[in-house]
Lab assay of single mutants.
Amino acid sequence: MALNTPQITPTKKITVRAIGEELPRGDYQRCPQCDMLFSLPEINSHQSAYCPRCQAKIRDGRDWSLTRLAAMAFTMLLLMPFAWGEPLLHIWLLGIRIDANVMQGIWQMTKQGDAITGSMVFFCVIGAPLILVTSIAYLWFGNRLGMNLRPVLLMLERLKEWVMLDIYLVGIGVASIKVQDYAHIQAGVGLFSFVALVILTTVTLSHLNVEELWERFYPQRPATRRDEKLRVCLGCHFTGYPDQRGRCPRCHIPLRLRRRHSLQKCWAALLASIVLLLPANLLPISIIYLNGGRQEDTILSGIMSLASSNIAVAGIVFIASILVPFTKVIVMFTLLLSIHFKCQQGLRTRILLLRMVTWIGRWSMLDLFVISLTMSLINRDQILAFTMGPAAFYFGAAVILTILAVEWLDSRLLWDAHESGNARFDD
């Protein structure tokens, strides 16, 4: 018995066209964080690309023209004298008006014999932002004059995390709450300039795509075929072959399989920071003279006294001054041990922890910024005066060393310790 099946006739004509040209192939790229070699397709503007294995951002879609970056830099340069030299806060102490600005706080630190601690604050609040705007201006002028731009481009990517104007702005709020127990506070004209400078700096850093600047100024022929001998440069993120001198053909720094002496430098910085954190938390970090009496505060006791007036601000200072430094030390110690013992479990967790400490590390400088600003506000000789204690130097040095330890660690070593050939990683 035959089955009668109805015929289905399409209502619209289906047209099949042959592909007349070869589909576009992607360029081969190595991930600078996990060293995976993959094919990167062509990316349009405002599109980002991520590593298929570790999800690290390979290409950032946010990109401004150099002219727009230069305009932002010149605007920031105009704001800087007002943000640093004009009063941020006014207080009335014992019937006398006192003005506080950024430069005055750094000068008070240096004047009291601790120039190293003052230079830490100076670099993060004044030096690094000033280098940022002058570097962008150098790129703008240098591109037109045919100057060598490689050193500036190499420095810009590392400079971003040292620009800490946003953290200093939080420190202004913390210092205001600490001082309000002794005097009446009012915002100064410099505060508005400083807030504007923070906003412009944040926007500029978020749109400063150094890798795209490398592509514009020093374009290189990408690798179009897969080759395990391809290496990625950690300076400019170019994937290719080393030249005859073993250097990256684009930025001219040595092109090595792994960062040289990464573990040794990381261990040295980490152990030194552990040693410095002990006096930083045991010795007094601030000293207040009130009517001839002397009151010393460690980091913890200062947080407890701050909690009596504002528990939320005390929580912020606790996280930045105690929780973050010790968390960074514990995480980095764990990561280094996992590399030495070739741990194969929990790779995803370790990668996330490394990215976390990379982002939060700079916030530990908050305590030094609060001390710097408070020193310029309260300084009335023996009637009422505020000065920093010996722990300030140890704390600042420990924070900087932990930042350097994270920067010096080559994250690809975590993958080397893991089993080879993993296309995915999980716990």
Rank of each mutant, 00 (worst) to 15 (best):
M1R: 00
R362N: 02
T349R: 13
F141R: 01
L145V: 15
N379G: 01
K111T: 09
G315A: 15
G61T: 10
H90W: 02
F386A: 01
P242W: 10
M36D: 05
S338C: 13
S176R: 03
F217Q: 14
L323H: 04
E212H: 15
S308G: 14
L79Y: 15
V331D: 01
Q7R: 06
L69R: 08
W107L: 10
R17K: 07
W363S: 01
V189L: 13
F141G: 06
Q220A: 11
R247E: 14
V275Y: 02
D166L: 15
A183Q: 00
D297P: 08
N379S: 02
L169S: 03
L276A: 14
T67W: 12
A175I: 02
G361T: 12
L366V: 09
M36V: 06
F333P: 01
P10D: 08
H252Q: 07
N379L: 02
R250F: 04
G246E: 10
L230T: 11
K328Q: 01
M1E: 00
F74Q: 04
R380G: 01
L197G: 05
I339A: 11
L401P: 07
P279N: 13
V121E: 14
P390T: 10
L149R: 07
W84G: 07
L200M: 13
T67L: 12
L94C: 01
L77S: 13
A391R: 00
S338P: 13
V189E: 08
L79W: 13
T334E: 11
T402Q: 03
G389Y: 00
T67I: 13
N209C: 11
I185G: 02
P129M: 08
W64E: 03
I383V: 05
E42I: 05
A100W: 00
S206G: 15
S420W: 09
K265V: 02
A187T: 12
L153V: 11
D426K: 11
T15Q: 07
N143W: 14
L347M: 12
N379D: 04
A187I: 09
D27F: 08
R62M: 06
L205V: 09
R247M: 13
L77R: 01
A280S: 13
A417V: 11
P242Q: 11
Q264K: 04
R158T: 13
G240L: 07
P32V: 10
I172C: 11
V125L: 14
M36W: 06
L336N: 09
D427G: 11
I274S: 14
I96N: 01
A405F: 04
Y218F: 05
Y28T: 10
A385C: 10
D426I: 12
G421M: 05
L366S: 15
L409Q: 06
I177D: 03
T134H: 12
L213N: 15
F326C: 10
Q295T: 12
V174N: 05
Q344H: 11
N379A: 06
L153K: 02
D63Y: 12
M76V: 03
D426F: 06
I322D: 13
I339Y: 13
L278V: 10
R226E: 14
L323Y: 02
V329S: 10
P6W: 14
Q55A: 10
C236V: 00
I311C: 14
L271T: 13
V317H: 00
P32W: 12
L414Y: 07
S364F: 00
V102Y: 06
D416K: 12
P284V: 06
P81L: 04
M164G: 03
Q220E: 12
I351P: 10
P279V: 15
Y182R: 01
D60C: 09
R144V: 08
Q33G: 06
Q29P: 05
A417T: 10
P254Q: 13
G302R: 00
M147D: 01
E211A: 14
E211G: 12
D27G: 06
S301A: 04
S273D: 12
V275P: 02
